[in-house]
Simulated scan of single mutants.
Amino acid sequence: MIRLRTVEGDPPDVDALVGMYADFEADDRAQGIPPIGTDLIRGWLTGLEGIHVVADHRGEPVGHAVLVPVDGETLELAIFVHPDYQGATIGTRTLGELLDCGAAADATAVELHVERSNDAAIALYRKYGFTAEETRSMELRMRRPLVTPPVA
């Protein structure tokens, strides 16, 4: 059974997350993250302050997602699932949890960057209301409002 834990501030269980990310191959990385090597992974994680959701299976992390403040109203989303757990709905479950947390944190929007070739992730993000705002040759920037302003 997969268990989700939500933590605000610094990432929880950095040592365990370093171990999870160390298993990622080159094809499992996007836009340079997670970095390669345990020291670089640890440095990246310790600087990643925000709202974290960790998916655990049998007491070990198999997924990690985070919302990081971009400005006073926008949060940036990143989701990573261990390669052995791709297709197990971990990304879907952590995304739903983080969107709820973002709305509770009074943010108005969530944005993310995704590789254009990642059809599964793009389909998931569209299902949750994200739309493409900017495209580059290799990536899309997608955005989703969290709060709809009242109609005047």
Rank of each mutant, 00 (worst) to 15 (best):
I2Q: 06
R3N: 06
L4A: 03
E8I: 10
E8T: 14
G9K: 03
P12F: 12
P12N: 09
P12S: 08
V14C: 05
V14N: 05
V14G: 02
G19I: 04
M20S: 07
M20W: 04
F24M: 00
F24K: 00
E25K: 05
A26E: 15
A26P: 12
Q31I: 14
I33L: 10
I33N: 09
P34I: 00
P35M: 00
I36Q: 13
D39L: 13
D39A: 15
I41Q: 01
R42Q: 04
W44V: 00
T46L: 06
T46W: 01
E49G: 08
G50S: 05
H52S: 07
H52N: 06
A55Q: 04
R58Q: 15
P61H: 08
P61N: 08
P61M: 06
V66P: 10
L67F: 00
L67S: 01
V68R: 12
V70L: 12
V70Y: 04
D71A: 11
V81C: 08
V81G: 05
P83A: 10
D84C: 01
D84Q: 11
Y85H: 14
Q86V: 13
Q86I: 13
A88N: 12
I90T: 05
I90P: 07
R93C: 10
R93Y: 10
L95P: 10
G102N: 03
A104M: 09
A107R: 04
V110E: 00
V110Q: 00
E111H: 04
L112N: 08
H113G: 09
H113L: 08
V114F: 12
V114H: 09
V114E: 10
E115C: 04
A120V: 15
A121M: 10
K127T: 15
F130D: 00
T131H: 08
T131I: 13
A132Q: 11
T135L: 10
S137G: 03
M138N: 10
L140A: 06
R141A: 12
M142A: 09
R144C: 11
P145S: 12
P145E: 11
P145R: 11
T148Y: 05
A152E: 14
